[in-house]
């Protein structure tokens, strides 16, 4: 093996300059082998565990299948029709979209505001930054279980309200069908705000100090600086955060599943909990697959439209700078 390698190596060095063309072709084979050699393991794993299951789900979605036995009962698009005409699934889509919107409208501005504050010289800044990031580091299941205990009737949260004289605001946080959605959104914000703030803070580090100095010399106020310099320059970060937030909101599962199970009476059902409930708990894997495909398509359309219309500018900018 070693001799053949040497032969190959010498062939390249001696014959190379005299015959450029074969050399180039040989170089191509080499790089081709290298690219595929390195990429193949990852590619095979990706295809086996991502592409193939997605394809299989698409196939299952056209069958009435309970997970046992062979796929025999082809029913066309019946599963899709059934899902899209089920008021519970439509409610799930509505809940997902509501969380997307609320996250963008509420979490975004709050995160930017807190990041701007934390970007100023402040005593104990590192400690505050760490504390804000702690909820994001917690496992989602742990956080949900903790909130489930805190928010139970006459639980610690109600006690806290009463101790500051707000006992009248007491609600059945997780049991009242009109309140539970907002409770869920609050817990989600608590959990993910830290991540948004961290991203914004990182984005703020990329804004050159010279711009602030120049603006200050020109007599701009702190507000004017933030409004006309910081936030526009924070644009790429905000757009990436919004993208992550939307996709996360669409696929929301763990927190809801542990905190409310999608209930009570479907008040907090999301597309993913609906899929879990019908696909696995009710043992209708064909129907569950159809729901999964719908969820996948909605996420894909969101992602593609967003990349095409919003993120394109950032990507082009990055490529331009790189070249």
């Amino acid at each position: 093996m070693s001799t053949s390698t040497i032969t190959a190596g010498s062939a390249v060095s001696t014959a190379g300059p005299a015959r450029p063309r074969p050399r180039k072709r040989r170089f191509d084979i080499r790089s081709f082998a290298m690219v595929w050699g390195f990429a193949a393991p990852a590619l095979i794993v990706y295809v086996t565990f991502v592409i193939v299951p997605v394809g299989l789900a698409a196939v299952y979605s056209f069958f009435n299948w309970n997970g046992l036995g062979p796929l025999e009962r082809f029913i066309g698009i019946d599963n899709y029709v059934r899902a899209l005409s089920d008021p519970t699934f439509l409610k799930a889509i509505g809940n997902n979209l509501a969380i997307v919107l609320l996250s963008l409208l509420i979490q975004g501005p709050v995160a930017i505001g807190v990041a701007l504050l934390l970007n100023r010289p402040l005593r104990g800044r590192t400690l505050i930054r760490t504390l804000i990031f702690v909820p994001y580091v917690l496992s989602e299941v742990v956080a949900a279980l903790a909130f489930k205990l805190i928010l139970q009737p006459s639980g610690p949260f109600d006690a806290l309200l009463a101790s500051v004289g707000l006992g009248g605001l007491k609600q059945l946080w997780l049991a009242d069908q009109n309140v539970v959605f907002w409770t869920l959104f609050f817990v989600l914000s608590w959990k993910y705000l830290g991540f948004a703030i961290l991203l914004m803070l990182a984005g703020l580090q990329g804004v050159p100090d010279e711009l602030f100095e120049a603006a200050a010399i020109d007599g701009a106020s702190w507000w004017q600086i933030q409004r006309h310099i910081t936030i526009p320059l924070l644009g790429p970060t905000i757009r990436i955060w919004a993208f992550l937030s939307m996709i996360g909101s669409l696929q929301l599962f763990d927190m809801v599943w542990v905190l409310t199970g999608g209930g009570p009476v479907n008040a907090t059902v999301t597309m993913a909990t609906y899929m879990m409930q019908y696909g696995f708990q009710r043992g209708q894997l064909g129907f569950g697959s159809a729901v999964a495909v719908i969820l996948f398509l909605i996420s894909l359309v969101f992602a593609l439209l967003y990349q095409r219309h919003v993120l394109r500018r950032d990507f082009e900018g990055a490529v331009g700078r790189g070249a």
């Binding site: 205990l149 009737p153 639980g155 049991a175 009476v265």
Partner: peptide
């Protein structure tokens, strides 16, 4: 039934 029974779990913890 108890208050808030719609969110009560059956077997987890004192609540």
């Amino acid at each position: 039934f108890q208050e808030g029974f719609l969110a009560t779990s059956a077997q987890q913890g004192a609540g």
